[in-house]
Design a protein around this nucleic acid. Structure first.
Lengths: 214, 214
DNA sequence: CACCGTAGCCTTACACCGTTAGGCTACAAG
DNA sequence: CTTGTAGCCTAACGGTGTAAGGCTACGGTG
């Protein structure tokens, strides 16, 4: 009668972890949550995650205070992968401008290849309060990398010296985010190839020399 | 015993409409849905809408096949308001460039002043299949207005003649959408004033003369 | 060996959700 | 007064997040 772990079709039993290995359930839950977010269209459900892992629904609360914190962990995992993808892409670039473009292309490609995960990272209402320090939300590191890339463009003379790298990075980030979310939320729209649009956007935002009227 | 209409605190009875006025419930439901989306942080619930109007939950099905169609109607209403706001803003502009900037500023201001409604319009997974003709999704009209505005910029010489207005409008739309959703999903980020960023973005996307390398 | 504390997970329950099936009631027409 | 039907309702099912309170088998100790 015990160890039935839910009534769903995915219910497969699972032995208790041994003493001292209780944290393995946390890892399994997080991995299952990421997997479900990536593969399922339905919104992530706490019970679905528990079902996937093979434990009772309430066992999730042993490692996550509530669903928001589980989603927060999924987001953090997504941002780790995103930072990795953009860093790898930036590493292979020759000059700072191409590095910035490559970084942005990788960013957008990640979003389009993992649309459901990207949606969770930005589209879900971001339960602030999940992170104890609100200034250290995930994604911060990615943005700092972007600021660094922009700064190198300015220092090397590719972008005008009078520009504020932080402001420029904000513009580029918002533009990339828009290119991704617009495509995700309007997939039937006749979009031009993403790499072309990204390159064009970055070039236009970065390389315009004089401050303009109005 | 009858006419209890749910158990929630907002349950206030409501007399039946008279014969021939059955469609008034539809109007009331839609208005309540928009109101709830605008004021509540929680996702829109069918039962909540029914509670707000003062009818049984299942009475929603008399006018909407399911929750997705109700959300679709909310989206359509939002796009109507959005198109109105941008059209009004564009009407008061002197030259085509300022018209385009004013349109984009109004677009972004609408998104930031109605963040929850804007989220429903773009952030929610857009249940396609709600609209019988997929090419006629709401928001189409707003985009066509934008294309027209860009075209006028090109014709008047403000933007280079070799540009494709549709492509340019796509870029500007995606950028605006990014500026809005980035702010909504990261409200603690130190954003520059939205009007400045929008003007800058439009200027940079539109006014860069030559096609660039790579 | 037997005992027992506790790590690791479970059962039960509640209120809310979307949705289906099948009514009820009061007005308008005859 | 009868009757059809427009306009709305109740009851119920399986799903959800979450709170309260167990159960069980392993590891250390006697």
């Amino acid at each position: 009668m015990s160890r039935q772990a839910g009534t769903g079709p995915k219910a497969r039993p699972r032995p208790n972890n041994r003493r001292g290995e209780g944290d393995r359930l946390r890892t399994d839950l997080l991995a299952a949550a990421v997997r479900l977010v990536e593969t399922q269209d339905a919104p992530l459900s706490l019970r679905g995650v528990a079902r996937e892992v093979g434990v009772a629904a309430t066992s999730v609360y042993l490692h996550f205070p509530d669903l928001d914190h589980l989603l927060g962990a999924v987001m953090a995992e997504g941002f780790d992968r995103l930072a990795l993808a953009t860093s790898v892409a930036a590493r292979d670039a020759d000059d700072p401008a191409e590095e910035l473009r490559a970084r942005c292309r990788a960013y957008c490609r990640f979003g389009l290849e993992n649309p459901r995960l990207y949606r969770v990272m930005f589209q879900v209402g971001l339960p602030l309060g999940v992170w104890s320090d609100p200034t250290q939300t995930p994604g911060r590191k990615s943005f700092e990398n972007l600021v660094g890339s922009v700064t190198r463009c300015i220092e090397s003379g590719v972008a005008p010296a009078h520009e504020d790298p932080f402001r420029l990075a904000s513009l580029i980030w918002a533009a990339d985010l828009g290119l991704i979310l617009a495509r995700i939320s309007r997939p039937t729209f006749p979009w031009a190839p993403i790499d072309d649009l990204v390159n064009e956007m970055v070039n236009r935002v970065m390389l315009l020399p004089p401050p303009l009227k109005k």
